[in-house]
């Protein structure tokens, strides 16, 4: 049924037109994403690039496709930090040594690795546990610009104070400064921390999951999905994990009740084990 003129939220309609363009022209499908965060990012994109309204993004997108990369990056950017949710790393510090003993090597997949802070955090943890050599690691993101950042592993010095605070809270006891060199106003993390990580562009919604990952990090990614999309992705990840495999999610994220194959390992720690 046609809605009356007053009932139509024009901005919402404009948002859908941008999404349709992104899907049909560039293959990015945001249909399973919550609308409010996308809308707020599009509105702030307009403000930052001095575009009058969301609809005005469509025309340049149609005629100069190079803008799509920038827009995708803007829409999907997540600002993360090293050792975010220290309780998770604290748990892994205790849990992993025994876990590694049962396997010749452990495959780890970071989904939605963004600018790579979490990849580096795990590298540091594994190095301190002497487990880096026994790991095969993959890091993927939808956003190609974020992946480039992740490969550079260079972060603003101003953020280091928070990273170090988190590192110490997670049970780290080394001199944190041994993991990076300072260049201008950046901390560049040592190449040996990520040299073996395979970075790739990957869309966890649209593409099949890599199989055989023993540990999957998918933190603060699924929070963007609608409940239906969320359930579908969790099921996809469960299917990709072997029995005994681990799924690490964000502190404010949850596993839907329908998913019976996952069990939380410890209260207050967002890590689940595949049990069936």
């Amino acid at each position: 049924m046609t809605k009356s003129f007053e009932q139509i939220d024009k901005v919402d309609l404009e948002v859908e037109l941008v999404m349709t363009t992104l899907k049909q022209m560039f293959g990015y499908d945001f249909s399973g994403y919550n609308r409010a965060p996308l809308k707020s990012r599009l509105l702030s994109f307009c403000k930052e690039y001095q575009v009058d309204s969301v609809i005005d993004i469509v025309k340049p997108l149609l005629h100069s496709p190079s803008i799509s990369k920038e827009l995708i990056s803007y829409l999907t950017v997540t600002v993360t930090e090293m050792f975010r949710d220290p309780v998770l790393y604290q748990f892994l510090r205790e849990y992993l040594p025994e876990y590694y003993q049962t396997k010749p090597y452990v495959k780890i997949w970071h989904i939605g690795c963004s600018s790579g802070q979490e990849v580096i955090s795990l590298s540091i943890l594994l190095q301190e546990l002497n487990l880096l050599g026994g790991s095969k690691r993959y890091a993927t993101d939808l956003n190609p610009m974020a992946l480039e950042k992740a490969k550079r592993s260079s972060y603003q010095l101003a953020n280091l104070k928070l990273y170090i605070k988190n590192y110490l809270a997670s049970g780290g006891s080394h001199e944190f400064s041994k993991y990076y060199v300072v260049e201008n106003d950046s901390a560049v993390f040592l190449p040996q921390l990520v040299f073996d990580v395979k970075f790739a562009q990957h869309d966890i919604v649209a593409e099949p999951a890599f199989t055989g990952a023993d540990i999957i990090f998918c933190r603060n990614v699924m929070m963007y999905f609608t409940p239906q999309q969320h359930l579908a992705v969790v099921n996809k990840l469960v299917a990709a994990l072997p029995k005994g495999g681990l799924l690490c999610i964000g502190l404010q994220e949850y596993i839907p009740d329908e998913v019976k194959a996952l069990r939380k390992l410890k209260h207050g720690v967002p890590i689940y084990e595949r049990i069936a």
């Binding site: 919550n34 409010a36 707020s40 702030s44 950017v77 997540t78 600002v79 603060n220 929070m223 404010q252």
Partner: peptide
């Protein structure tokens, strides 16, 4: 429904 995001600071 509420939803969460880790977009940049405002």
């Amino acid at each position: 429904m509420f939803c969460l995001s880790v977009a940049p600071l405002l």
